[in-house]
Design a protein around this nucleic acid. Structure first.
Lengths: 336, 336
DNA sequence: ATCGTTGTCGATAACGTTTTCCATGGTTAG
DNA sequence: CTAACCATGGAAAACGTTATCGACAACGAT
């Protein structure tokens, strides 16, 4: 605690017999210090184990070298994204503070804005917003990049993936396997990406000349319980579907569970395809056929773009959409 | 950027016709300001949307209200722990910066110390160390709590769980099912918790009057590849085991994979039990019988203890060991 | 009237940096 | 021999807070 408080730049200066200005110069490798003093100051820094106060530097430089990542909750998607972000941040000279709202949906979606205004310019230099709800304007002076924002590419720099094509791929896969009664478990209606997945589903159906059946489109809400309930209805209703395309892997896994409870086997009695390709989808039973979204890469890109923005570097396109692709595993099978 | 820089305490003071000192008092609810001025200053703060600079406060108060969590890598265990930590941090007035070393094992285990000394007292007020390697002494003035440290409860405040008993439970379960040739896939030899799991295994065996067979004890290293290789050897060797107890879930899942590749079914031909009860263990196929370790709770406790330490509050016992318990799912079966 | 008291408020010195600008001495060119 | 220059170093002002302490008015009590 109080043994020696903390060694400051002044201590170094005194010990080396120079001014603090000079010490600062050697730390920041500024011009105007002779080789001799440079070496001497360096030695003293080493000797005293001096570390510059990041706080004082931040105050002076108006820059904290901390970036924030805001997620609503630490579910598999944001967890994967976080891994990519953590990876990208390493060695960048920035630190990463993660803020998880804890899945409180009761909050009127304004928490992102509040968090941002409280911390921007004072604790973080910029932030990555994961599936941000409101179309919040950028806090002036604080760069922000959005990952898969609710309302689609707003004016904010955005990273997302090709949800439309992914959903088409998934549906086409099912069609090629001979399925005709293909149900859809939707995502959250407020998320644009979720709507695109639905659109992709409908388009693929239309392209195959199949009229959509409203009875086969149910709510999944990206939530295991809601999805399980919907799947249950779907599978106990009249003329049940032979396949389900769920708007994300969590819903798909819940669907498999519901089917199993009803004594149906996957893929024997029901084919299921998910979306996201979170690690869980490969582990679950049966391993899920799903649409791969390069989540880690998205986290990586988001951080890189944000850093470029912060540094005022040239950033390329301000809205990048990554490719999606189909991953066929063992939850789908051709209709006999 | 430069539209209006940032509204500072001085702006508020000027607008309200008071001194900065007074504004500071109302912000911090200090004594010595009349009801009238209090209201007026509050109104101005609201009007200007003033937010105090956390950086300046930190510099002045020698306190950043940020705590760090250091993990070697974001694998399932630390991810779960992070969820618990994020949960505990919410509403505490602290922010959480996570630092992931990225699994570089090439680093001579000193990264924790370096990170800590660089950031302590300057960016973080304290840190949670997850499975820290070296028995690093606390950086003076920076509280630290360790979760499942390598060398066991050092002088650092520590949170862990009852690894010994958990391993005994798991082994006894296998014994009760009639298994006699029970293999063990060890964890990392440098981790005390891993050694305890081995000890638990050996003790349970001894209690049942079974002499341990060195040929049945292999390296798992908490790594999927190493584990798969060891499992392969184990299962193709002479007189193969009828059950495997793996030191963690990742190894167990890898073992199941290896068995499947050899045409063996789990639990039909081989029973497998894991350790940790990470979410993946419930999803995988078949759902894993495993030892539950309350990982989220551990994260929660670690944060709470750290905050108490930082605040100088009374902290209870400085080393808490949480209970472990057996979770029987579908990867184990009685020997015919 | 005088003297504490109490209740408000403000000047000011920190906190630990970085940067700008000036002073100094030595060196070179004219 | 002087003028101009360069290389090096330091003084001091910021950055936005908070805490200490003194000033000053109003007020009740002597």
């Amino acid at each position: 605690m109080q043994p020696s408080s903390r060694v400051t730049i002044r201590d170094v200066a005194a010990r080396a017999g120079v001014s603090v200005a000079t010490v600062s110069k050697v730390i920041n490798e500024r011009y105007g210090v002779s080789a001799a003093t440079l070496a001497r100051v360096r030695a003293v820094i080493e000797e005293l184990g001096y570390e510059a106060s990041l706080v004082a530097q931040s105050l002076r430089n108006h820059r904290t070298n901390v970036i924030g990542i805001l997620v609503a909750d630490l579910e598999p998607f944001s967890t994967e994204l976080l891994k990519g972000a953590a990876d990208a941040i390493r060695g960048s000279g920035f630190e990463l503070v993660v803020y998880s709202a804890g899945g409180r949906t009761g909050d009127p979606a304004g928490w992102e804005k509040r968090y941002l205004s409280r911390l921007s310019g004072t604790l973080v230099d910029g932030a990555v917003l994961v599936t941000p709800a409101v179309s919040l304007e950028a806090v002036p002076g604080t760069p922000v990049v959005a990952v898969d924002p609710h309302t689609g590419p707003s004016h904010l720099p955005t990273i997302d993936s090709d949800n439309l094509r992914g959903a088409q791929l998934a549906t086409e896969h099912l069609l090629e396997l001979g399925h005709r009664r293909i149900a859809f478990l939707s995502g959250r209606p407020d998320l644009q990406s979720a709507e695109l997945r639905k659109t992709g589903y409908l388009r693929a159906l239309a392209a195959a000349g199949i009229a959509p059946d409203e009875a086969l489109i149910r709510d999944g809400a990206y939530d295991p319980e809601v999805s399980a309930a919907s799947a249950h209805e779907l599978l106990t209703g009249p003329d049940r579907p032979t396949a389900v395309f769920a708007a994300n892997d969590i819903s798909a896994i819940a669907t498999v569970g519901a089917a199993r409870e009803l004594g149906l086997t996957v893929p024997g009695d029901l084919s299921v395809v998910g979306f996201d390709n979170v690690p869980e989808s490969a582990l679950c039973s049966p391993p899920l056929t799903t649409v791969d979204q390069p989540i880690r890469e998205m986290g990586h890109r988001a951080i890189r773009m944000l850093i470029a923005l912060i540094n005022g570097d040239e950033v390329g396109p301000t809205h990048v959409t990554l490719d999606t692709g189909l991953v066929v595993r063992h939850s789908t099978r051709a209709l006999p």
